[in-house]
Design a protein around this nucleic acid. Structure first.
Lengths: 331, 331
DNA sequence: GCTAAGTCTGAGATCGATTGCTGAGATCGG
DNA sequence: CCGATCTCAGCAATCGATCTCAGACTTAGC
């Protein structure tokens, strides 16, 4: 394969380099005959422009980083999947960047992406993002965050309404007849995690039942600890809300290990709406986040900010997804 | 942030551009005093080299594509995770490319990666890879495949020993007392999927029990169909081997929906060893693939092939992982 | 038919690096 | 003390595109 540069095509088409360039990136600036001729020749040669050279010269590329803490977490995987497509449709190429929760890595990606002339980026954090720290980076001025952010600041964000989600969960459980409803966090760090917990605490109290947090850790063992705690209680709740689907899985698994059945002995709900939940045992009742929408909107917000500096905060509506892990309380 | 080019650093350090370049990429070619001086200045300015310009000029980059069909599948997610790190450690930057099973996308990535001057790539296919089709692409000569390929050809591969894995599963189940062991494929397309199924068919017959394939589809509903089939049988098997963990999850879930208990009523095993399996209900007994090793070795093979054209085929040993989804057959 | 206003295309500098070549000093043996 | 050998740094071409400028040709208006 001889190296295919723009000059090769130019020679083959009998025109100047610049004309070929225009034929591709500014079609209206070149006579349509010439353009079609060039395109035909290029096609025949199997030529495509070098994104590298292009980015270098233009000082802007179509690479859009999506920074996530852990791709092994299905929530982020689903986000990545839908965002890949959303990016594609708009002519961008999503670059997945995994931090493993290490803030230093995030910063590394920032400078790398700056160097790649990425027009903007999307960050799905694992901690409360520090807006000021963000803004210390050049690239930090061009990201949108998938989480709430301290004091509605100058960074565009997309989130779903945590409180509304908890309301949905609580209503569902109460309509089933539950009055004693526990909570296990299993995540922390992000504002979203905090918001869900706060909403539970507050709304649970309103409902005249005492809030009951089985575990508030954020490690993978939270589910097991919550189950242990549950077993040790004299008067355990008849239903449990988990802060996200993964934790719900862990709770159900741990409970199952001790012979507790879901939903016969206790109802368990998740929060996320992972596809995986439909194939859990039992299929998980949960509060669905519109992940695909989040991805699309994140990119839109990024484009908007890039265009006219506007900083929007979009809050999406969650949705109740009833499957089989909840039922009426045991008599 | 003024644009930080190599010339800026050169000026600041009072040397020529080329000297700065050497200070970074060919340390031995510049007097150590000078070099340290330059490095210090660069550090102070917060300068990093443009990977774009570098790749353009050198005609080789450090981008390594990992092409997977679906990042939402935890197997590929885990692969991506470990490979990201493996790549990092060797100075590469992994670029995750998701095809959604569309071969056209794979080809698109090939030419894109060619244009990015990627030194090589890793492909985790969802279909039997056609070596000839691969070789039609320039970039196809520099990939390693995570699957077996037709006729031990000229493409390096990494796989785990499918037959051995099935042996492990069968031995485990038989030692528990099972004699009637079913199989559900749920995947197909890859040679690995084929190999597992073939191994089951063959070894199962040897064990003097008749092979019993509950479902051989490859869609997400295979689990449900297998469960349906199971329920309709007069004499259902007492144990089921699923071709991978995800299918095992689906089978257990579907069975559970019909009131069949695992492992009390029927034992179910998976194949993969996903981290998720430990938190399933019940925790999944499975055959573990050394995913991290696969990632590391894939990159090693790629480097080797790139260096001296050697084409190796590495076959890794799977390992039995006993958890709670298997037990003795019901009396 | 002649000038003014468009259309198109070509020239050449430029983006941020790398690298073969050349030459200035330093080192060294005799 | 002199030429030969080494080191080390500068020069300038190059990678594959983009884009401003300016010139060549059309087209239009009167």
């Amino acid at each position: 394969m001889p190296d295919l540069s723009i000059d090769v095509v130019a020679k083959a088409a009998g025109v100047h380099r610049s004309t070929v360039s225009r034929a591709f990136s500014r079609p209206e600036a070149v006579k349509s005959e010439t353009r079609e001729h060039i395109l035909r020749i290029a096609e025949g040669l199997g030529y495509t422009m070098s994104p590298l050279a292009q980015a270098l010269r233009r000082k802007t590329s179509t690479f859009v980083p999506l920074i996530v803490p852990d791709i092994t977490n299905p929530f982020f995987a689903e986000l990545a999947k839908t965002m890949t497509q959303a990016a594609d449709e708009r002519g961008y190429q999503l670059l997945l960047c995994v931090t493993n929760g290490d803030p230093a890595k995030t910063e590394g990606y920032f400078t790398a992406m700056q160097a790649m002339y990425a027009p903007f980026g999307i960050v799905a954090p694992s901690t409360k993002v520090d807006t000021d720290a963000l803004k210390r980076f050049d690239f930090g001025h061009r990201v949108v965050v998938i989480d709430r952010v301290e004091g509605d600041s100058s960074v565009p964000t997309v989130t779903v309404d945590s409180r509304r989600g908890i309301v949905l969960a609580l209503e569902h459980l109460r309509s089933l007849g539950h009055t004693s409803i526990g909570y296990v966090s299993g995540i922390s760090g992000t504002h979203t995690a905090q918001d869900r917990m706060d909403a539970y605490l507050e709304l649970s109290a309103e409902g005249s039942s005492t809030p009951l947090v089985l575990d508030s850790g954020s490690d993978p063992d939270a589910g097991a600890r919550a189950a242990k705690h549950f077993l040790e209680m004299d008067n355990p709740p008849t239903a449990i809300i988990a802060a996200n689907d993964m934790v719900a899985f862990a709770v159900i698994s741990a409970l199952g290990q001790s012979g507790i059945r879901v939903p016969e002995d206790v109802s368990v709900m998740g929060f996320d709406g992972l596809a995986l939940g439909a194939r859990f045992n039992p299929p998980l009742t949960t509060v669905r986040q519109p992940i695909a929408d989040m991805g699309n909107i994140a990119i839109e917000l990024a484009e908007k900010q890039n265009l006219n500096g506007s900083v929007d905060h979009v809050v999406l509506e969650p949705e109740l997804l009833v499957r089989a892990s909840t039922s009426g309380p045991r008599k």
